[in-house]
Write a protein that binds this DNA or RNA. Structure first.
Lengths: 334, 334
DNA sequence: ATTTAAAATGGTTACGTATTCATTTTGAAG
DNA sequence: CTTCAAAATGAATACGTAACCATTTTAAAT
């Protein structure tokens, strides 16, 4: 591998001068600069970013610990995060983390001495949070937050759950089911709470049979759907913990011969890009500003990195209903 | 930052021994090992991957230069590539490259001395190809290939184009349009050629008005759609260069009040995951094996990296029609 | 006890860069 | 022609690790 020393030798200058040519060319005389540039060109020299990181104690790298891309929410956020980071001069190490590989994911991030960590995969009660704080690396969580309520960007999840239930109630639905994710996750937890609150406020009955807070795998969602549809009094509406779940349920509903929204209303939360597609037109709840949560988070993170700010980021975006085609007024009693 | 030297001092051993504890613990006595492990734990020591890279001349990092995620093809491939790489112990630097940022993307990959490069964004006639070969870094292209015909993984694009046209023809369509991407890209180019060949083989007339090989932006696709629908003899079928384009066209068609497949048949190429969704059910052409192209490519790349093989990878997967719900037999002449 | 090979550990160096400090060169003012 | 500050360049070092070679310790065989 050709190094700056090789370039120096070839150009007849010191390695220091080569370094200067690349970093502070205004301090080197024109003829010298030309000589060095010529040598760089002739030798096809490319500086080694790792060596630079070592001496500068800065890697210009950010670790992204995201959920899997089959969840369209993470498609939108990953895209925004990577593009913004690159624009700002940072490389992004991406890992799609499932729960049992989480420690590993943190380890690689730490070993690479990244300048910052942006992550969605954190539980309300996650011991990793303390470690993260100890590490003294700027970090931020998006979509989810830790119980300590520090450094997060989210939508108003409680309100989102509330609005989605209210939406169904106002459409005349009496039997409303909930399909959400693990309650160990702040977003699902708060969305579910909001849902419950609305049901309570409107004095609707609610039996446990209609509640599923399961793993978010396609498999589990299908199971939940089948259970719901086998009930004597089928729900006429399903509120879901995320667009991703709603999309899965829609798929199930269709393959089982149910018509949405004629037989069944379904609403999501997140307002992911794909939900707007003409063929999908998912009714959902999302940020009023329609700002991408990932973008919001990464811009805050880079701000933290570059300005060494230590003040806690706490952003909760207000939400509203995006009324589309998977929900409708109920006409006749079942 | 706490280094292995600090650990050594704290444990009363040499830095060499600390290094051994981490890399070849079988060569260090139990009591010493315990002492060092204790020190590591107490000091919260985490080895510096960049320093290691420097001395080992291996970064365990792969650069992924992908197309944008709003193209679902890249959702599927990115996911597969990152997951497989991580499983195999590699970190992945992801960049979503648009054409004018390409040189920059290569530069960062080179500066980081990645162990390998996996990329989709290469043109048939791209000068970067020679540079890549000169760099002596293992690399592979997926989906697209360079005219030199080296190191690629693709589907049989010509056949894909051919089959999609043939599918429409056999359904009785006479006026078939083509909406594809830039012909500077091998996949689009070959798909288009296949389409043309089928039209020719079946002796169908084809006017230039029905052909669009445009930029793949949503904007451009919409423009193409409007042009097609304004024609005196509207096409009854559109063959597209990719599922991504087909999905855009479907969106346009719906928002313009056309019914698919009643008014218009649309077929894609790629068989992306989302095309199977119950609400979409896109008829498309895809690899018979249904192997993810990204996975195929990344496994070959890592093979190249680890076994220092230099033999050229040339994989072209055979394809077939996946007949779903966006195409149908034409009933009556328009 | 002595020898000896194997096991365990340590000292030193290299990786490629930026930085710090010292030295040389330049050119304008006297 | 000097003087001297400013501009330009260079020498030496540090960053944190693995690798190489040298040295010490251990334990088995005589």
């Amino acid at each position: 591998m050709v190094s700056s020393k090789d370039v120096a030798k070839h150009a007849g200058v010191s390695q220091t001068t080569v370094s200067r040519v690349l970093n502070t060319p205004e301090f080197v005389k024109k003829p010298t600069l030309d000589k060095v540039m010529k040598a760089i060109d002739e030798l096809n020299y490319i500086p080694n970013a790792h060596a630079r990181s070592l001496v500068q104690n800065k890697t210009n790298t950010i670790a992204l610990l995201s959920g899997p891309l089959h969840n369209p929410f993470f498609v939108d956020t990953t895209s925004a995060i990577i593009n913004y980071s690159n624009e700002m001069g940072y490389r992004v190490n991406v890992q799609y983390v499932n729960d049992h590989k989480l420690p590993e994911a943190y380890a690689t991030a730490f070993e690479n001495k990244v300048d910052g960590i942006i992550l969605s995969c954190i539980l309300i009660d996650d011991p990793i949070f303390e470690k993260l704080k100890q590490m003294d690396i700027p970090f931020i969580t998006y979509n989810r937050k830790h119980k300590k309520n520090e450094n997060f960007v989210e939508i108003d999840n409680f309100q989102a759950g509330y609005l989605s239930a209210q939406h169904m109630i106002e459409l005349g639905h009496k039997t409303i089911a909930w399909v959400g994710g693990p309650l160990t996750v702040s977003s699902f937890n708060n969305r579910y709470s909001g849902f419950l609150q609305a049901i309570k406020d409107y004095n609707l009955p609610l039996s446990e049979q209609y509640i599923f807070n399961t793993d978010t795998s396609k498999q589990e969602i299908s199971t939940a759907f089948h259970c719901l549809m086998k009930l004597k009094h089928r729900p006429t509406a399903i509120c879901t913990g995320a667009d991703s779940l709603a999309l899965n349920l829609l798929d199930d509903a269709i393959s089982e011969g149910f018509k949405v929204p004629d037989d069944l209303s379904i609403i999501g939360i997140d307002n992911v890009d794909i939900s707007q597609h003409g063929l999908i037109q998912l009714t959902t709840v999302g940020s009023i500003s329609q700002q991408n949560l990932g973008l919001l988070a990464i811009s805050e993170l880079i701000e933290m990195i570059e300005n060494k700010k230590n003040d806690c980021i706490k952003i909760t975006e207000p939400v509203k209903i995006f009324n589309r085609r998977t929900t409708r007024k109920i006409e006749n009693k079942q």
